[in-house]
């Protein structure tokens, strides 16, 4: 019974996000045990828009298959988690932590990643779209080239699957920039940490096009970094950055 009710709640939330709400649709009310259902966010550009730097085939698989799988598995884990919370089943709640972190991390990381990429020919792909950020990059690393070298070294130093991020770290009134690498799908969600832009270093992010030549992928990704988004995240708060996740519930 409960699982049927929960499924219908998930279905209603799916209808909401796809804007096909019937007028007599009941507003959705989550019971204590129900978990909201997350959905795959649409890309802000076409699959082939990042070519030749990232092929359409990679983008399509990456978005419609890989990201979708994180969303699907996150929803499944959250559903089980909600049941475990409802029944005060602590061991189950704890045992679900790894799956939630991995799949929620995958959903968060990819959602941020799509937004911090842009077609190479667009004005957003120019560092001049991020005057404040670039100014702090220069004062931190000396110049843009030195920053890119440091970022590249961090990305190529990842052992296994993971991500590289430019992060704004806020401590009280102070703020600084840092290059951070994370393993697997660990997201950048620490206190005071604002992810500015990320680069996916899982092999699925480049292998069909670059094979084992990941240095070339890391070189070419600079052509499609969305500096406008980066500037907005840099000037905004942590809550602003993660707002986009709420739109895909």
């Amino acid at each position: 019974m409960r699982s049927i009710m929960k499924s219908s709640v998930a279905f209603v939330s799916f209808l909401f996000t796809t804007s096909t709400i019937a007028s007599d649709q009941q507003p959705f009310q989550f019971e204590a045990m129900a978990a909201p259902s997350h959905t795959l966010p649409a890309l802000p550009y076409a699959y082939d828009a990042l070519e030749p730097h990232i092929s359409a085939q990679i983008m399509e698989l990456h978005h419609s298959k890989h990201h979708q799988t994180y969303v699907t598995n996150l929803n499944a884990a959250m559903k089980t988690q909600a049941e475990a919370v409802h029944t005060s089943d602590i061991p189950t709640q704890v045992s679900l932590q790894a799956a939630i972190k991995f799949n929620a991390g995958g959903h968060i990381n990819h959602s941020l990643f799509w937004q911090n990429l842009a077609p190479a020919s667009s004005p957003e792909a120019k560092p001049s779209s991020a005057p404040s950020l670039v100014s702090q990059i220069k004062s931190t690393w000396g110049d843009e080239a030195a920053f890119r070298e440091a970022f590249k070294a961090a990305l190529l130093g990842i052992q296994g699957s993971g991500w590289g991020w430019l992060v704004k770290v806020e401590t009280g009134a102070e703020q600084r920039l840092a290059i951070v690498t994370t393993k697997d799908q660990d997201p950048v969600v620490g206190k005071g940490e604002v992810p500015i832009f990320g680069v996916d270093m899982w092999e699925h992010a480049y292998y069909l096009q670059y094979l084992n030549g990941k240095a070339a992928y890391v070189e070419n990704i600079w052509n499609v970094i969305n500096w406008k988004t980066a500037e907005e995240r840099f000037l905004g708060t942590r809550a602003d950055v993660f707002k986009l996740l709420k739109t895909s519930i």
């Binding site: 296994g160 699957s161 899982w202 092999e203 699925h204 292998y207 069909l208 094979l211 084992n212």
Partner: peptide, 8 residues
Amino acid sequence: AWEHAYYL
């Protein structure tokens, strides 16, 4: 189970 072992 690395992706390079099967992805292509």
